[in-house]
Amino acid sequence: MKTLVCFGDSITAHELNDDDSLRLTSRVRLSLSKWNVINAGVPAETTRLALTRFQEDVLRHEPDLVTVLFGANDASTHRLIEVEEYKNNLIYMIEKLGPSKIILISPSPVDENEQHARTNERTHQYAKAVKELADTYNTHFIDLWKKMTGRNYKQMLTQDGLHFNKKGYRLLAGLVIQKMEKLKKAKKTKKRFAALAKIQKG
């Protein structure tokens, strides 16, 4: 069985919402029954803290794929990790895992009417940094920032203006599942072409 590790902060960490609706890993696990889905999320975490447990919570599992979703805390005023360090921390993860095994996910927008420790202007800088790294290292990428700002994203957030409600997790989990299904199809196509090439050479 293949292994998917979902690595992140509180948006990844919990399995259920307060209303008992499924969050990220529980939704992905339900849809991808042939995968061992490991929840490696820790609330309130930044990428700096995440590196201290990267070996134990990610690499130790020898995963086939890893989703990486950080930025909400790195961009906050009370836990601020500057963008350059944030990028360097993500680069470390990419280089340790290998670009083909990582799905970078950009941080999401917040409801500034409810959030006083985060602004969309600052968080967008972190979202752009993730996209730049995905382009530079040719990793798999989910542009969650773009997907949410293209919708009425405030309806996807809980009352704190940061965490996701049922609609938010339906979108996020759907994007992860869609990405993994796309990768599976691409791998099958690659194998098919390799087989045809082998036949033609013979």
Rank of each mutant, 00 (worst) to 15 (best):
L49A: 09
L49C: 06
L49F: 09
A50V: 04
L51A: 05
F54P: 02
Q55T: 06
Q55R: 13
Q55G: 08
E56R: 14
V58K: 11
L59E: 01
H61S: 03
H61I: 00
P63L: 01
P63Q: 03
L65W: 03
T67Q: 09
V68I: 05
L69M: 13
L69D: 05
L69F: 09
F70Q: 01
F70P: 04
G71I: 02
A72Q: 01
N73P: 01
D74H: 02
D74P: 03
D74M: 04
S76G: 10
S76Y: 04
H78L: 06
H78T: 08
H78D: 15
R79N: 06
E82V: 02
E82W: 03
E82G: 09
V83I: 14
V83S: 09
E84S: 13
Y86H: 03
K87N: 05
N88R: 01
N88Y: 01
N88Q: 12
L90N: 15
L90A: 07
I91V: 15
Y92E: 13
M93S: 00
K96R: 15
K96Y: 10
G98D: 11
K101F: 08
K101C: 03
K101H: 15
K101A: 08
S106M: 10
S106P: 10
P107Q: 12
P107A: 12
P107G: 12
P109S: 12
P109V: 08
V110K: 03
D111F: 00
N113D: 14
Q115E: 13
Q115F: 04
A117P: 01
R118I: 08
E121W: 08
T123C: 08
T123K: 05
H124N: 13
H124V: 03
Q125Y: 08
A129I: 00
V130R: 06
K131H: 13
K131Y: 11
E132V: 03
A134I: 00
A134W: 00
A134L: 04
T136Q: 15
Y137T: 02
N138P: 03
N138M: 11
H140K: 11
F141E: 11
F141T: 01
I142L: 13
K146I: 02
K146P: 00
K147G: 02
M148I: 05
M148S: 11
M148D: 09
T149R: 03
T149V: 14
T149L: 05
G150F: 00
G150Y: 08
K154P: 04
Q155F: 00
Q155W: 04
D160L: 06
G161E: 11
G161W: 04
L162D: 02
H163Q: 12
H163G: 12
N165F: 01
K167V: 00
G168N: 13
L171H: 09
G174Q: 11
V176N: 14
V176K: 14
I177H: 14
I177Y: 13
